[in-house]
Design a binder for these strands. Structure first.
Lengths: 146, 146
DNA sequence: GTCAATGCAAATCGTTTGCATGAAC
DNA sequence: GTTCATGCAAACGATTTGCATTGAC
């Protein structure tokens, strides 16, 4: 797994390659997601920045723009969690799927190689070139089913 | 597989059981989704009603309320398709997952028993009681990768 | 007759855009 | 100095809500 500095370096490289400007704001947004233990919505990222980087005076529009940009270059990924809308996570971690408790909102991440293999097979059968996937199992967690 | 009348009967039963009123509008919304070949957004359902049931004079708010209600009682299901927002489908059909072409928007449905089995296994391992799941594979379809 | 459901319009939410300013190169 | 990115506020689209009215029971 990459460490944080390596990911930031990757961002710098991508920005330079595209002839764009490197800004503190994009770095902060990426950093927040790297350090987040959870999946964050745009607004949650914004609030986290106001809390952890109070001197930055970032605007919500910039957060949205940075998130779109970072997703576009695949440094972060987004998932639509049922009713709760789009949430983001850093791509630094290995890919994983989600068990989501519809009662308390708890999210358990998991990875199953067998499923990944079957997905590839299905894609091949349909002449589909898979770029990414998203899988959520909704239900009730141990605590909530008591 | 249920036929349409059975599903409508099911709706009547649920409504009665909950001590609510049976209305034409809820029936129309459910009917539109039963007969739809595609996944429909709230607005698409609304437009379809205006087209196929022009005498009904339904309001968009009612469509939203009916969709929420029908989803709550599991007669329909919603999926968030990437950037395109929430779309609904009748639950009458067997469960299936989705291959989604990010280039042309085409959706291919599939069902894989092996994957379903693995999902159950994972849920069991985490003491999770699965109610539903949602899986999307994003990529490029045959036509678009030419 | 009672109470839930509806239609309409207004309100609200999350997100995007236009524009003048500021920062990176 | 040029161009991209930012902050702010206004705009926007999708969804929800308040309220008076209608319709199911």
């Amino acid at each position: 797994m990459n460490n944080n500095e390596e990911i930031i370096e990757e961002l710098k490289k991508i920005v330079k390659q595209k002839g764009l400007k490197y800004t503190e704001q994009r770095e902060i947004v990426l950093n927040v997601l790297i350090n987040a233990t959870d999946h964050l919505s745009a607004e949650e990222v914004y609030n986290e920045i106001k809390k952890s980087y109070p001197e930055s005076n970032i605007g919500i529009a910039t957060v949205y723009r940075a998130l779109s940009f970072l997703e576009e270059v695949h440094l972060i990924a987004s998932i639509a969690f049922g009713t709760e809308g789009k949430k983001y996570e850093s791509n630094a971690k290995a890919h994983h799927d989600h068990l989501i408790c519809t009662s308390c909102g708890k999210i358990i991440e998991f990875l199953d190689n067998e499923i990944e293999k079957r997905q590839d097979k299905i894609a091949k059968k349909n002449n589909f070139k898979i770029v990414s996937h998203s899988m959520q199992l909704y239900g009730t967690c141990e605590d909530c089913s008591k």
